[in-house]
Design a binder for these strands. Structure first.
Ligand SMILES: NC(=O)c1ccc[n+]([C@@H]2O[C@H](COP(=O)([O-])OP(=O)(O)OC[C@H]3O[C@@H](n4cnc5c(N)ncnc54)[C@H](O)[C@@H]3O)[C@@H](O)[C@H]2O)c1
Ligand SMILES: NC(=O)c1ccc[n+]([C@@H]2O[C@H](COP(=O)([O-])OP(=O)(O)OC[C@H]3O[C@@H](n4cnc5c(N)ncnc54)[C@H](O)[C@@H]3O)[C@@H](O)[C@H]2O)c1
Lengths: 248, 248
DNA sequence: AGGCGCTTGTGAAGGCGTGCACAAATCGCG
DNA sequence: CGCGATTTGTGCACGCCTTCACAAGCGCCT
């Protein structure tokens, strides 16, 4: 394991060299979950936490958690557990949360309003620095201290604020056009709420959130449960059930 | 393959026997995507569609799509493609979308408001039949023709409306309690927007949507791209980039 | 009727992720 | 100082998923 990577911790060096030994996608999708659990535990006063305990708090298998964390390096102490503060620092560093990330939100409609007012972004190092819409009637409206600007100003704002992440909350029909504009403005990560497939250059990452799909997956399981009425075991009320989560 | 399963199609029989040859989870997570693409194509006038075409529309590999569809049975015609209408019917049947599914929404705050007004649910066979909140000030408020009711009425409404799916849009602190109440009321599928792990009986399905996690994953990739400034190939502008999607 | 091009359905291989089980390491205590 | 309790880090095996590649099947054209 990389025992000499201990020195190169977040706060210290700025231009620290090496890209991480490319973590498995499945792992990085779980890191935010661990981070949240750690924050909760930190407030609880705990100084260290065992893999078992943290795994329980994050809702995963403890072996999986240890393997995930081992990819970041060796930040635990055998016989003791993980130092909560240090681990938080490490994960935040790996996720790039030590630097505030500017986000722009395009489409200030029903959903956009909710997102604009959501404090769960700011508390994780994300700051919405621009609200954009094509509807002239919405331009100028102030939401949580931020005025809605016209979409045509995107390129300008993106440069001014060094925006790398964009959120699309427009109707599906406009999403591709908006994505193109975001890309043109230099955005390299997009979170898309519109139910459609986006086509973007290879260097741009897209993540999609589609509530209808989630419901349809649940519907399938409902359908399945319904057709299996005659299940031999009956209902077994286990403590922690089957938790499915987003992630690619 | 199962050539005799053709007769047992959706519309016809009601109490049709067999549970599907349990589809892979990865497949069922993609079926809604195919379904949306098919609906778009259907409006476009196409009568049949090739796996290549549908795969492109859904943003997946064509071999994967064929394998996914082959799990439902053989509904394509070699040399021609898939009959759009038939395939839609099939997928909707498998997902259990042929019957309207009643949904209740708990927590009518910022996010809850947006969800309550979202028409993307109804258009997919889901109907929000109850809005519930603990805040007396919100009880009675009418949103899109539906009045907010007090959470204490959950059990009653759940039975009246045969609610099997519940959506949680309350603060994280209240989510577990709400989940317990939903389970007690007979709900067997939960879509959770609160950033926390829910503990439920084994027969209950939970899916989580956490926007902060999505952003953190994007942040990681931003961080990675930033540290890799010296990438040999430069930016290769491929047509369809890397599309990550939700799903477990 | 026969051949040709096109498309599906699938066998097989490879990669990824998961979870078990255990050796190595650390702490506390006698 | 040594020993036992505890917990991490990981080698390994298994299963799922993805992807390639191709035979089988279908329609159309001659
Ligand atoms: N409301 C929800 O709860 C919800 C849930 C899941 C997904 N979605 C999806 O999110 C998207 C937005 O939903 P909504 O309910 O907020 O819709 P909405 O119609 O209320 O808002 C859309 C906003 O986008 C703006 N817009 C349209 N074209 C634009 C363009 N080219 N550039 C910039 N802005 C543009 C409109 O002016 C409007 O303000 C939709 O794709 C919807 O399917 C919504
Ligand atoms: N707003 C967003 O864009 C957004 C985005 C992602 C996730 N979320 C998450 O969704 C949840 C809701 O967010 P929000 O911004 O709508 O919060 P909010 O505070 O605006 O709304 C929460 C609502 O839940 C109600 N509530 C509280 N306790 C309840 C209980 N025990 N039973 C029933 N109702 C109860 C409150 O009365 C309130 O109306 C939070 O967990 C938040 O983290 C919100």
């Amino acid at each position: 394991m990389s025992q000499q990577r201990h020195g190169s911790t977040p706060g210290s060096g700025s231009g620290n060299v090496p890209a991480f030994p490319d973590l498995p996608e499945a792992t990085i999708a779980r890191l935010p979950e661990y981070l949240r659990a750690l924050h909760n535990l930190g407030e609880g006063g705990s100084d260290t936490i065992s893999s078992e305990g943290l795994a329980a708090a994050a809702g995963v298998n403890s072996a999986k958690l240890r393997k995930d964390l081992s990819h970041l390096g060796s930040y635990g102490t055998r016989g003791v557990g993980y130092d909560v503060a240090l681990l938080i620092e490490q994960i935040e560093y790996v996720l790039g949360l030590d630097q505030r990330r500017a986000v722009c939100l395009v489409g200030v409609g029903n959903l956009g309003h909710a997102l604009a007012g959501y404090d769960g972004f700011a508390s994780r190092g994300f700051k919405i620095v621009a609200l954009l819409d094509a509807d002239e009637a919405k331009v100028g409206e102030v939401i949580h201290g931020l005025a809605v600007r016209h979409i045509d100003e995107l390129a300008q704002v993106a440069v001014e604020e060094s925006i790398a992440i964009g959120v699309i909350a427009t109707p599906a029909g406009a999403a591709q056009a908006v994505a193109d504009e975001l890309v043109a403005a230099g955005v390299t990560s997009i979170l898309n709420f519109a139910p459609c497939v986006l086509s973007v250059p290879a260097n741009v990452d897209v993540r999609k959130v589609d509530l209808a799909i989630e419901l349809q997956i649940l519907s399938f399981h409902e359908h399945r449960k319904a057709t299996l009425t005659a299940l031999p075991g009956g209902r077994s009320a286990t403590g922690a059930g089957n938790q499915e989560a987003v992630g690619s």
